[in-house]
Every structure is written in C-alpha cells, then in structure tokens.
Amino acid sequence: MRHLLSTQDVTQSEALAILDTARELAQVADRPVKKLPTLRGRTVVNLFFEDSTRTRISFEAAAKRLSADVINFSAKGSSLSKGESLKDTALTLQAMGADAVVIRHQASGAAHRLANSDWIHGAVINAGDGTHEHPTQALLDAYTMRDHLRDGQGSLEGLNVVIVGDVLHSRVARSNVWLLDTLGADVTLVAPPTLLPVGVGQWPCRISYDLDAAIPEADAVMMLRVQNERMNASYFPSARSIAALRAWTPHGWRAARPRDRHAPRTHESWDGDHCRCGRRRPVGHRRAGDQRRQRAHGRALPAAGEATTGKR
C-alpha cells in the first residue's frame, strides 16, 4: 500500500494490520522515551489547505514520535493568496524531497490528484478531502470500536453501527461505511432524505429515517454534526425540526438500552454542555470538535437540545 487515499482501497487484512500496529504503537506513549527511530531521516509534510486542529496535531505528533522531520504547511499565510496552485505547491514539496505528504483540502479528490499526478513521488495520505473521504479518522473510529467492543482483537464481524446525522456533507461517514463494511460490521445510516447523498443506495449499508427504531439494535452510535459551513441550500426546515428526531440529543441517548449507553461514541458527537446534561458521560467520548466546528455546532445544535429539554 503506497498511498492512503480512500478506505475503499483498504483490504481487511491491511486494515487489521494497521489497527494491530496502532495498538502496539499506543504503548510507546507509556515508555520513558516516547520515540521510535523508524522514520529517521525522512521528511513528512503536513499540507493543510483547510483548518484543522486535531488531525494536524495528531499527524505532527505521529511523525515526530517516529523520528521524521516534519514540515507544516497551512493555507493561511502561504503563497496561496498570491495565486499559487496545488500543482505549484506540490512541485515545491517535490523539490524539497518530501517522503510523505499528508493533505487536507476542501476539494473532493485533491489527495487523489496529488497521488496520481507526476508532481510528487512521495506517499500521499488523505487527511480529509472535501466531502469525499477521511480514511485516517475512519481507522481511528474503527480502532476505538474494536478497543471497546472487541478487546482490540480480530475484526468487527457482526457489530451493528448506526451513523446518524449529516451524511451528505460527511467525509467521515463515507470512509466509515466502507471501512466498517470491510471489517465485517453492519452499518445503518440514519438521516433525513435531504441529508443523504445521491447514490447512497449503492453503499454497503442500510438506510433508515427513524433513529428511535435504529438505536435499540446498535452496538455503537456515531453522531455527525450538521455541517452548516458546507450548506448552500436549505436541507431541513429548521434546527427544531431536526430536534424532533428525539434521539439526536443526550436525552434521546438515554432512551437506548442500558448496554448501549456504554457503547463508544466516536468523533464529532456532542460537545461540552450537551454531554454534561446527560446523566452519565458515555464511554469513549473524549474529543471535542475543533474551534470552527464548535462554532458551527454552537449555532445549529443548542436549539435542538433546548427544544427537546423543553418538551420533557
């Protein structure tokens, strides 16, 4: 495997090898010397055309712990504002001898273009391209589920995973559907029809419009936020109407079976206050969204939470 562009390219044995490696590497953080010499003398470029906190810091920390030299590029403050194109940037990186490029870009397919052009000879890792894919996040989500529900062993055969929310704009949902299917899990997407992409019927998953019906069957639930910043049209009448899907809130979460309350919730689930208003904090909720996401979140979702609270 030369590049990591999409979870569709990853076979089950490759995915399991990555998850097993991650499990062993996680131990490195507990050692006195938190560094391995594996990538010594290699150069890794983090190419971030889109804002990111967690992903960029994670990639930087990972490369540094493997002893690579890391160069961070972010669109803000670069020559992009002078009209430099992706190709110009890529050729500069090639001249610098980048062994690996981690790219996040607002355009779907940017990572693919970089990997399959002649601009650059290093390995390309997709850290999120538009609304297309975010394979490393999907691998991390799979790692979390495997860790909590399968003791970090084997595949995810027979696991029921419900992904609920703005699937249309979610690259994480796409990557997760393919990867979880590869790992043997059964995936159900829950969203209003307007927030499901065209052609979703071809994906290896079930579709449901009723979260209350899907949750009791779920071993793990992934909540996707509403990506206001990507919306250029009305996809639902109001935040209040979304809140009508009762279980989009922590209160609805409690309606789930006791077993499910211990199921890991991964990725951009409810931030801050929303989580605290639930009686117990679900296992596996550990990451707050990045700032811009929180802002977008803050606009759309408190209304949903309050609406439900008011109803009770």
């Binding site: 097993d20 062993e24 010499p37 493997l66």
Partner: peptide, 21 residues
C-alpha cells in the same frame, strides 16, 4: 521486546506486523 520499529533494514523488507513488548 519487539524490535520491528528499530531495524535498519525496514526499507528493504516488506512491512511486518508488530508484536507486543
């Protein structure tokens, strides 16, 4: 003691799975 990540011939061999330390 797993030594996979410390080898000097990593570039010459296919990737191998890591073992627990």
């Amino acid at each position: 003691l797993d030594v996979g990540m410390y080898r000097d011939d990593l570039r010459l061999r296919p990737t191998v799975a890591l073992h627990p330390t």
